[in-house]
Amino acid sequence: MFLYMLIFTAYHSSRWIPRNQRLKFQIVNAVFVTLVLVPQFYVMGRPTSSRYCRQPLLNNLSASIALSLVASGFSVTFTLVDPVPQSLWASYHVFGLLTCGQGLCTAILTLTAAACARTTPELYYISLILTAASIFSTGVVMVRGLWLTHRKLVTDPSRNNEQ
C-alpha cells in the first residue's frame, strides 16, 4: 500500500498547484521516484543479495521494483492529466489491491526470514523498511477510509432525519 499512498499523495499535492506551474512539481515527483527506486536497485545489484536465503526476498524485491516503476508511471500520469479518466482511476485501485497483496507478502516473508539477516543483510533490511512502510501506509489508508465512511454517514443528504 506504500506505493498506492505515494500516488495518492502526488495526485492531491499536484492539485494545489495551478496547471501552468506543475512542471516544478514534476521535478519534485521525479526526486521522490528516485528516492524510492535507487535503494531498491542498489540492493538488487549488491553481490551479497544473491547469496542463499531461505525466503525468496530477492524475488520479492524484484516484484517491488516492478510495482515501483508502475507507480512512477501512475504518479506522472495523474499529475499531468486533468481530469483523470474513470478507467485510469479503476486501474489505479486495482494497482492498490496488488500493492496491498505485495505488502502482505513482504511482511510475511520478512518476518519469517530472520536468519537472512546474517547471509543477506542489505536485502533483509530493505525488506524490513518496505514492510514498515507498507504497514504504516495501510494504517493511513484504513484511517482515511474510516474517516470518509463516517463523514459520508454524517453528511449524507439522502438520509431521512425526520422522525
Rank of each mutant, 00 (worst) to 15 (best):
M1N: 04
Y4C: 00
L6F: 04
I7S: 00
T9L: 11
A10K: 06
S14H: 02
R15F: 06
I17L: 11
I17Q: 05
P18I: 08
P18A: 11
Q21H: 07
R22V: 02
L23H: 02
Q26V: 07
Q26S: 12
Q26F: 03
A30W: 00
F32E: 04
T34I: 07
T34D: 01
T34Y: 03
V38G: 03
P39E: 12
F41I: 05
V43D: 03
R46C: 03
P47Q: 06
R51V: 04
C53Q: 04
Q55G: 06
N60C: 10
A63K: 09
I65A: 01
A66K: 08
S68Q: 10
L69Q: 06
L69G: 02
V81E: 06
D82P: 00
D82W: 12
P85D: 13
Q86M: 08
Q86F: 12
S87I: 11
Y92Q: 04
H93W: 10
V94T: 07
L97A: 09
L97D: 01
L97C: 13
T99D: 00
C100S: 12
C100W: 01
C100V: 06
Q102C: 15
C105M: 03
C105A: 11
L111F: 11
A113S: 15
A114I: 08
R118T: 15
P121M: 05
E122V: 04
E122Y: 08
I126L: 03
L128H: 15
L128T: 03
I129N: 14
L130V: 11
L130D: 05
T131A: 12
A133K: 01
S134N: 15
F136V: 09
V140K: 08
M142P: 06
V143G: 04
G145Y: 15
L146N: 13
L148I: 10
H150N: 10
R151F: 15
L153C: 09
V154Y: 11
D156H: 15
P157V: 11
S158P: 14
R159K: 09
